[in-house]
Amino acid sequence: MRIWLVLAGLNGAMAVGFAAWGSHGLEGDSARWVGLASQFQLLHAAALLGLARFCAEGRRLFRPAAFLMVAGIVLFSGSLYAKALGVALPVPMLTPLGGITFIVSWLLLIPAGWLAGDHARV
């Protein structure tokens, strides 16, 4: 549980900081990219808070969902932050890959939630 809470706090703080930077220090496309990246980062940081509880209960299917949310933050938000800074990405499709990672993490919650109702350690 500790790692997911730490990552939730770190990502929440980063998202707020990047949002402030984007709204006060950037213009045009860069400001929009940072705004979108920080919005998704903050949303998924909040979701990690909830997942931390289920992970602490030993429910195994929730751990991959939490891991994929963190990976999605790195890929999606990280690539947009890099783009706003003018950093060339080593792989051009990182942002969409991050979006797909987010979707898969949320879809993984379907069987995890379904099976959690049976009180099994799933």
Rank of each mutant, 00 (worst) to 15 (best):
L10C: 07
S38W: 02
L5Y: 04
L109C: 12
V87T: 13
G17R: 05
A88C: 01
G86M: 09
W4L: 14
L80I: 12
L42T: 05
R2D: 13
L68V: 00
A84D: 12
V6I: 15
D29T: 14
G86L: 10
F54N: 10
A8P: 04
L61Y: 02
A13G: 13
L10E: 02
V70W: 05
A13D: 04
F18H: 11
V91F: 15
H119S: 13
G28V: 12
V6C: 01
F18Q: 03
F54A: 10
G86Y: 06
S38D: 01
A37L: 07
L51K: 00
P111Q: 07
L5A: 03
M14N: 06
L43I: 15
C55A: 15
S79P: 04
G17W: 02
P111V: 07
D118A: 13
F18E: 00
S77E: 08
I3L: 12
R59H: 14
P96E: 08
A84K: 11
P92R: 14
L89F: 11
F76E: 06
L26R: 15
I103W: 09
F40W: 14
A52R: 01
T101A: 13
G99D: 09
S30G: 14
L68G: 05
G58I: 08
A65T: 00
G86V: 11
F67K: 00
L51E: 03
L89S: 10
A31H: 08
V6K: 00
A13I: 12
Q39G: 10
P64A: 09
L75T: 13
A37R: 06
G25H: 11
A46W: 00
V122Q: 05
R53Q: 06
G99V: 09
F62G: 07
F54Q: 14
H24A: 10
F76G: 09
R53C: 03
L97K: 03
F54Y: 13
G99R: 05
A88H: 11
A116C: 07
G98R: 06
G50C: 04
A47E: 01
L109W: 07
Y81K: 05
A20T: 13
A46Q: 00
I110M: 13
A19R: 05
A84Y: 11
A120Y: 00
L109P: 09
L51G: 07
F102R: 04
G35Y: 02
L68P: 04
A19F: 06
A88I: 10
L48M: 13
R121E: 07
F40P: 03
G86Q: 08
K83C: 02
V91C: 00
G113H: 06
S23M: 11
Q41S: 08
A120F: 01
D29P: 08
A88F: 00
A8E: 01
E27T: 15
P64H: 10
R32Q: 13
I110Q: 03
A31L: 07
S30L: 03
A19C: 04
G117S: 05
L80K: 04
L48V: 07
P90M: 11
A116E: 12
G98S: 09
V122C: 09
G9D: 05
S77A: 15
S77I: 12
G25T: 10
F62Q: 06
L89E: 11
V34H: 08
R60V: 10
P90A: 14
W21E: 03
A45G: 06
A45N: 06
A84F: 10
W21F: 15
G12M: 06
F54M: 09
L7A: 14
L43V: 15
I3N: 02
I100T: 14
F18K: 04
